[in-house]
């Protein structure tokens, strides 16, 4: 049982590392004033487009983005963007795009030889992905 719990914990940690910790951030545009709020839209009704504009006349509510580490799970990204954009009152996200960067991170790794353990730096390459778009609402 303990072994099973350990395995589950290791797998969860591995999955979390793979997908990376992520959060959605919003930069409001305040085109209709900083105090203007909009009624929420159900996440399932929020549209996401890269090249198409679903409405002729719209107000841009802000820039929405989600950052992920070491890979992009599109379903998860779309789900979280829809959720947060809907709460903000957006009916669609347009101009969706992804920009990725790679970086080298140094972590200290415990290395043991002949019962003598030392900490050694280990270089790993990680990639960061920023998935973003503009939140809009029909005028």
């Amino acid at each position: 049982m303990i072994q099973f719990t350990k395995n589950v914990a290791v797998l969860t940690l591995f999955a979390a590392t793979l997908v990376g910790c992520s959060g959605v951030s919003i930069i409001p545009f305040d085109q209709e004033g900083p105090k203007k709020t909009y009624p929420p839209v159900p996440a399932s009704q929020v549209l996401i487009y890269k090249t198409v504009k679903p409405f002729k006349n719209y107000v841009e509510l802000g820039q929405i983005s989600r950052r992920t580490k070491n890979g992009v799970n599109m379903e998860s990204v779309f789900e979280s963007l829809r959720e947060e954009a809907g709460k903000y009152g957006a009916e669609a996200i347009i101009g969706f795009g992804i920009s990725s960067t790679t970086a080298t991170e140094t972590t200290m790794k415990r290395v043991c030889m002949n019962n003598i353990c030392t900490m050694r730096p280990e270089m790993t390459t990680v990639s960061y992905h920023n998935c973003s778009g503009t939140m809009i609402r029909k005028k």
């Binding site: 890269k50 990725s100 960067t101 790679t102 992905h129």
Partner: peptide
């Protein structure tokens, strides 16, 4: 597929 974007870090996206 339209608007192929080289995302960087060996990845691409398009509509």
């Amino acid at each position: 597929i339209y608007s192929l974007q080289d995302t960087g870090a060996h990845s691409m996206n398009a509509s």
